[in-house]
Amino acid sequence: MKYLRQFFIIMLISLLGEALKWLIPLPIPASIYGLVLMLLALCTGVITVDKVEEASTFLIEIMPVMFIPASVGLLDSWGALKDIILPIGAIIVITTIVVMGLTGKITQGIIRMEKRKKNE
């Protein structure tokens, strides 16, 4: 019954996320509201980690397979994509590398700066 109750809590928070999305007219998905709600519930102690730990570990572990259906859907948008595939492909490759590299560099730089400040 433990797993069922854990799954129930996760579903309940997902439902509350949907309710917020329905109430607030912004392009923010239910999942993000749900993530914030879950974090608040954990921080305030409304839910303790052991009440959701196993079920959430399982769901997070199998997350990659959840992207398969949408990715296979690229098949259907090929018609719209093929005429501008070169510029779009170039934009995707270049920005992904640049954003990941620079974001990591900047974050790491600040972390190290703070560490040095503390050591002085």
Partner: peptide, 17 residues
């Protein structure tokens, strides 16, 4: 499979916490 994406994203709060 996609249906599980919302509850899984909600679960990302656990490791974050």
């Amino acid at each position: 499979l996609s249906y599980l994406l919302t509850p899984s994203t909600v679960c990302l709060a656990v490791p974050l916490y």
